[in-house]
Design a protein around this nucleic acid. Structure first.
Lengths: 237, 237
DNA sequence: TGCTCTTAAAGTCATTCTGACTGTAAGATA
DNA sequence: TATCTTACAGTCAGAATGACTTTAAGAGCA
């Protein structure tokens, strides 16, 4: 007799994709439900946690099985366990979902699996989703935007080397507003988390900008004491 | 038959207590384990989640059953689910703990249940605890200190009316350092979350300070979209 | 009564941070 | 060569911050 609520792990998968005008916008991956309840509606990818599987590993598996991609960044978001998450169900169907959120590079995302039942959606224009997934996404979006300011999150969307304009484009897409280029440069240079490589990006229609990279030696205390113990990014390969 | 990890809810219970010199220090409630593993060591109060019980309700129940108190503030901290949380155990014993943290008023805490197996500990001087509970407390402490700055958390330790000196004492106890009284006053008045009541606290050995209260109409976006769904109501925006 | 002790509360000052903005540099393109 | 575009450096005013000074309002005591 199983008297405990079921445990599932779901993952919010963020990336940046160019819109019809070519400017980057924040997008996320959803899957279509093919079973009741909420059959036909879109939902976060997820599933039960295996008995010998770490939480973050389960989230990475969601990501891989849904899009075929690896996370550039992965962090726990929240555990959702309200009694009314699945309306009309009785206690036996109760599921507690531990939700992670992941960033994938925009170049990789362009090559991601897409099908009738797996697709990218613009983060700022979501339809009604299954379960409490609209609330989950509201919160994920809020966390992403807040965290961007005091962390190295933008790296999750970019390649190893990038111009300050590209970095600013990430910030603008995530925050949903334009930033002053001069002030952005000053802010980034002041906090010291990026280093100039000396190389320049050639072939633009204007003065060639310098390429930067993140300074791995700078420790941004993203998660405080949890910083590596729960998200073993480096070990994971 | 049961192929899912077990689900438990634990609670970090913070309060402020006067030390031997009479100044307030941050303390937390722990219970002694009376079973293996880690028999005899101190640990966070917690237990399995009932099938029809909300996560936050389970955390409040931990608090009530341990100390007899009600939370002034309650927020989810993190879900801990590493495979090696309980060393030497096999997969069948695996437990995923969803940890909450709570604040209780220092006046109520003085009347809390204490026994041989339930006791308060200073937050800055902890011995080796059961399971991964040292890590959990490190993280809880980090979150508490970070959150203090941009929220109304200190209210959780205080009564309805308080002087700015009392409010500052809470900040100093939590942050573990002294703050300039003048600058603290300026900061608090600028952010506008407290209101002067017009009353004064009489009977001190010096000029009577004004009593303040929190302004409930000011919305501090603590949890973003989750701010109220955490406790009970489900409001869609 | 007057003196001292203590904290309340207001204010000063220099530094840093922030947002808005200007000016010049270095390419490509027409 | 002229023009377009973005890179990059710099200015300026107002806000925020940390260290500090001054005055106010009580209690306690000689």
């Amino acid at each position: 007799m199983n008297e405990a609520p079921a445990l599932a792990v779901s993952t919010v998968i963020f990336t940046l994709r160019p819109d019809s005008q070519g400017s980057m916008k924040l997008a996320l991956a959803l899957v279509r439900r093919i079973r009741k309840p909420f059959e036909g509606l879109w939902a976060l990818p997820g599933g039960p946690l295996a008995l010998n599987e770490d939480l973050a590993d389960a989230a990475a598996r969601n990501l891989r099985e849904t899009t075929g991609l690896q996370p550039r960044y992965l962090e726990q978001l929240y555990a959702f366990g309200s009694l009314d998450r699945s309306p009309g169900s009785n206690d036996k169907d109760r599921v507690v979902s531990i939700v992670y959120w992941a960033l994938v590079g925009s170049d990789e995302a362009a090559a991601a699996i897409e099908s009738e039942n797996v697709s990218w959606f613009w983060a700022d224009d979501l339809e009604k989703l299954a379960f409490d997934h609209n609330l989950i996404l509201d919160y994920a979006l809020w966390r992403l935007r807040n965290k961007l300011e005091y962390s190295r999150l933008a790296h999750g969307f970019l390649g190893e080397r990038f111009t300050l304009a590209q970095l600013r484009e990430v910030y603008e897409a995530v925050l949903g507003r334009e930033l002053d280029p001069g002030n952005f440069r000053r802010m980034v240079e002041a906090n010291g988390s990026v280093l100039a490589t000396g190389e320049r990006l050639e072939g633009t229609r204007h003065r060639p900008p310098q390429l930067y990279r993140y300074d791995a030696s700078i420790d941004l205390t993203d998660l405080g004491p949890l910083k590596s113990s729960n998200t073993k990014q480096e070990k994971k390969k």
